[in-house]
Structure formats: C-alpha cells, structure tokens
Design a binder for these strands. Structure first.
Lengths: 291, 291
DNA sequence: CAGTGGTCTAGACCACATC
DNA sequence: ATGTGGTCTAGACCACTGG
C-alpha cells in the first residue's frame, strides 16, 4: 500500500450540509403486506412503498441522492434531523443509513457527519482495481491515454452490456496501465455518448484523478459496483504491441460492466492483463472486523 | 440455476438446540479503552476483552462455535436467552449475531432459530464456485476424482499459503470438473495431513456432497472464506490431457487459499480452467436488498 | 398455541471533531 | 461548548414456524 493521506488534502474545507426535501413516512402511511401477493415476482423488484420502514427510509434517501439533490462529498442532515424529517425513530433511520454505507452510497465520519460517497484513488484501488504484484503488494497504476474517439457501436457484447443497440453513438477510450514501470494492462472502454456529453480527449487526458472521479465530478455519474467476467486468451497483435509480450502469449481478458444507481450500466470495459508478473486477485467473502 | 429444494430433504428433523457455556460480559467487566495504547498494532489484532460490547459478544459466540461446542446445523439458544446469558441487551446481542451472519458463521431462520452455518451445494455454488457458462447460466459441476495421495510438501507456494514447511506431510487430491458434459476445470488440492487425519481415497470418492461438506462433517473444519489469485498460462501437457485442449492453449490458473476460523489456512488449491466456453466471474460489491 | 427471529421505538450516554 | 455519529438499553409489537 502506498502511504496515502486519508484526509482531504485541501483540509479545513467547511462541511457543506445539504437541505433535503424528504417525504414523511409517518406511521399512518404504513403499507403492511408480508411481501406482495401470490404470483408476484419473488425475485428482485420491490413495490416502492412496501416493505419494512427502514427500507422505505433507505429508498427515500437513495432517491434524493440519485436525483443529485446533494452532490457527492456533501454532508447529509444529521441522523437525528433525518429521522425527524422522515418521521421514523433514530434507530430505524440508522438502519437505513447502515445499508447505504454497505452499498458505498454513503460514508460516515464519527463526529463530522454522514457524506455522499465520492470516488478517489483509494476507493478505485480497493473496490475496482484487482491487479497486484505477484508478491502481493499493491500499487496505483500509471495511466497513459492511447486513443480516444467517438464512433457507432459495433460490438455486440458491449451493446448487450450497456443495453444499447448497435449503431448508437459511443465514446471509445484506450488506456495503458503501467505498474513498476512495466506495461501490464490494456483497457478499452466503451461509454454511451449520451451519458458523457462534452467529454473530449483533452479533458480526459488532463483529469486530475481516476476516471471514475471524472465521471462523478464532470458528468454526475457515480459508479457504485461492477461485474467482471475473465478468461484466458492468446495476445493478439495489438495487445502484444501495447503490453510488450509476444503475439500468442497467454494473457487475461477481463470484461467489466460498471453500474450506477438502479443497476444502470454506464461503462463497458475490456482489459487485457499481462499476468507474467502480476495476478488478478479475488477475495471470496471479506470478513467483518474484530473477530 | 438448478431447481434445488431449499429445505433439508430429510425434513422434519427436530431442531437440536445447543446449550452453551458462555462468559458473562456484564457491565462491570467493562474494558473501555479507545483502542489500545500507543505503539499498539493499529492494523489487525484486537485485545480479547476490548472494544464495543457487541464485538465482545461476537467473540464469545465465535469462541464456543469454533471450539465445536455446537456442531454445524444445530440451533443456538434463542436470542433472548443468549442476551440474558451474556448479560447484554437483546439489541446488542442481535448486533453481534448480525455480524456472524454476514461472516457466514450463523444463519437465521425467522420463527425457527439461529443455526450454525453448514456447507451445502447451494453455498458452494454461490460462495466458492465462480466458473459459469459464457451465456451467464450457472450449473453445478460434476466432479471426478483423478488422483489421491499422501506425500511430503514440495511446493513453495503451497507451503507459504498453508504456513507449513516443505517436507511436511500433505494430502494431494486431483479432481476434474465437468460442465455440460465438457471437462472445464482441473483442480489440484493440497491439504495439511495433520488436519485431515483418516481421509482416504475411498471416503473422498464416496462423499455424498461437496468437498467442503466433507471437511465439515468428517473433520470439523468449516471453510469460511478464501482468497484467489488468477493468471493466464499456457496449458502444459497434463492440463491439456485432462481438459482436452491443445498443449500451449491459453487457460486460466486460479490459486486459492481457503480459510477457517481465525483465518487459518486449511486448503491450497490450484485450478486450471478452460475458458473457451466458460468465464471466471467476479462481482465487485454485491448490493444489499431492496433499493 | 407458544416460541422464534424481525421491526420499531425513545431515550441515555460515550467518543470524536470542530470551533 | 456544541453537534455529530457510535454504542447500549428495555421494551413493544409483528411475522413466521412448529407442534
């Protein structure tokens, strides 16, 4: 781990606290219902006003955050105030916030407040970057922009992942990631042009932080989670050139679909990884603290 | 997903409820302390009697479970009783149980009780088996035992992962996993012989369930979590033969260390996966329910 | 029906951050 | 000193399971 300061470097920025318009979930509005009636999809969807009170509180908060009523980095009203506004007890409110924290939507800081989560190098490294040195050490990659262009979508996998039709306008970004001075990853990102209006090669190249920070600060798109599918392939000429491996060398190909609120896909990315000196790591069930 | 009945097939087995010897964490025993003093390792270890009360309750429960005072599948005393025994409020007790459920140590069933978690096909598939068809469908693999022998450990990676010295006695198991009638995975498992005393090829071949069920029911070893490191390699002669791919074909190699209580390693496994028709999947941050 | 976990409440006090 | 989140309590009521 690089020794990165955890506190904002700009320090002493006063806490911006959002004022929110929230519906009252008063006990009157109680929608009982032990899950919907027979024939209802028992799988995923939930009626908006149903379920336990803390879930409804969670959805209410999620909605105002999703709508951008409080920008990433700003503080929510205090838990006591939120509870009062929503008309629920503090315990119930806290349970709703607990889940939003688990979902990486909110971050709590004791003594300071509860904040809408932001992307930073730290989060990128831990949540979204899974390549590490064979000896187990982790380090932030150096990113090099290789290509940027706007085009019509012609990739069936990308189309399916992004829920677009072939032919729709997309932006394609190619990056090379370097670790310890060696090229290790070749990324090819496909972004729906409609979501990233105004993104230019210049803005991309000059961004100060990670690309997910750029999505968030410039396009109000917060990547919350992602799904990856990996396989081994033989390096083609292009990958071989970018990564400096022989054509035909075994490399890992990782296809990622990044999702925002409501599991809406916002980025499809194909990474080709030279795993000669690095591994793709995967932790099955992270432990909670303090055993 | 295969349509597997969730309820025990043996049904109607009366709930065995464990009687536990638990220490009282009474308010008198309050070990305050905002984390240990200066110079303490701020990283991982925790003093046994320190931290919040719910953590101490958690550790107390963990200890009796770990010691085997209540076998997997048995029910704990009711939450009310546990709270009384430990001398904490029901809310605090529930918080401790919440974490143990998140850690897959306990399972709650409303109306029935809280049970020590067991391994079954379902859990294996979701928590520990990450190979699925390219179209996204999942299916349980068919397992074929290829080899079993006892030997001296001669693999530096395995030694490090299992925290053994080379030369110590280990059991080596080789399996071939088949999906849709095609061989897809070649597993080579290394087990510390000291932990699996009495394991024979026959018992392994005739086990009724998954191998982690066998560890649990026959050797009182519960695999709680695992860490995997993947890379792309060229298939060697042995992998090529077992998987039916050409020598030199790109395949994925996944090295897994499986851990039990206290993060003690109990199995080291190297899987070679033919990713021609299947993917290795990885979900980055699973969402909690009900958004 | 009795017993279990699941939800919800109202309040107290502590630890921490900031001014 | 004030306000924030973190912990803990004691109880009420609901939903579900099993005899």
């Amino acid at each position: 781990m690089a020794s990165v300061a955890m506190r904002p470097l700009v320090a002493a920025a006063p806490v911006r606290r959002a004022a929110l318009r929230l519906p009252a979930l008063g006990v009157g509005a109680r929608a009982v219902g032990p899950a919907a009636g027979p024939g209802a999809a028992a799988d995923a969807e939930v009626a908006p006003g149903s379920g336990p009170l803390y879930r409804r509180a969670k959805r209410a908060l999620l909605q105002v955050i999703e709508q951008g009523a409080c920008a990433p980095g700003t503080a929510l009203p205090s838990e006591a105030e939120l509870a009062r506004t929503l008309g629920v007890s503090i315990g119930t409110l806290r349970r709703a916030v607990d889940e939003l924290v688990a979902d990486h939507v909110l971050v709590r800081h004791q003594g300071r407040g509860t904040f809408v989560a932001t992307h930073d190098a730290e989060r990128f490294l831990f949540q979204f970057f899974h390549v590490e040195r064979a000896d187990g050490r982790r380090e932030s990659p150096q990113v090099e922009l290789l290509a940027f262009h706007r085009q019509r979508l012609d990739d069936a996998d990308a189309a399916e992942a992004l829920r677009l039709r072939e032919g729709e306008a997309v932006l394609v970004v190619e990056n090379r990631l370097t670790l310890q001075g060696r090229p290790v990853v070749h990324d090819r990102l496909v972004l729906p042009a409609a979501l990233f209006r105004g993104l230019t090669e210049k803005r991309l190249a000059e961004r100060p932080g990670t690309i997910y920070q750029l999505y968030q600060s410039e396009f109000a798109i917060t990547v919350l989670r992602a799904a990856e599918r990996a396989r081994a392939i033989a390096a083609d000429r292009s990958a071989a050139r970018v990564l400096g491996v022989p054509v035909g060398a075994p490399v890992m190909q990782v296809r990622r679909t990044a999702l925002t609120f409501g599991d809406k896909p916002v980025e499809y990315r194909v990474s080709v990884v030279n795993t000669a000196r690095h591994d793709y790591v995967h932790v099955l069930s992270r432990p909670s603290r303090g055993n």
